[in-house]
Amino acid sequence: MKRLVVVDSNRCVGCGLCAYACTNRYGYVGVSKSAIHVRSAGGVERGFVVVVCRACRDPPCSRACPVDALVPRKGGGVVLNPSKCIGCGFCVTACDIGAVMWDSEAMKPVICTHCGYCVEFCPHGVIALEEVG
């Protein structure tokens, strides 16, 4: 199993190409379906914050889900079962690092699958896929 890790957010230049790559998994361009988000750490001179699922072993988002739509994944994190999801958004509030994004078109969370597609499009080695047991 693999998980996505932020190697060094200080290498991030804030281009956001990771987020565009993520949205592209669904055949879209933009940021509406991205599970990874980049924002400045209070002004770009202070660098950037890369917000993405860190594949918790005991994910609070999963525990907050009232309909068991977020199933813990082997290796950490969760898998979304969209047909169970009722769009309550509890998972969003349950994640303290803000890594459960929201698709306001589908009214469902966007969950990182740790596929690593974004890694291919990070020009500066900020993120990587890491093998986990």
Partner: peptide
């Protein structure tokens, strides 16, 4: 001290 990019540009 830092290199920064416009959004959607890898060049920075």
């Amino acid at each position: 001290s830092r290199r920064v990019a416009c959004t959607a540009c890898p060049v920075a």
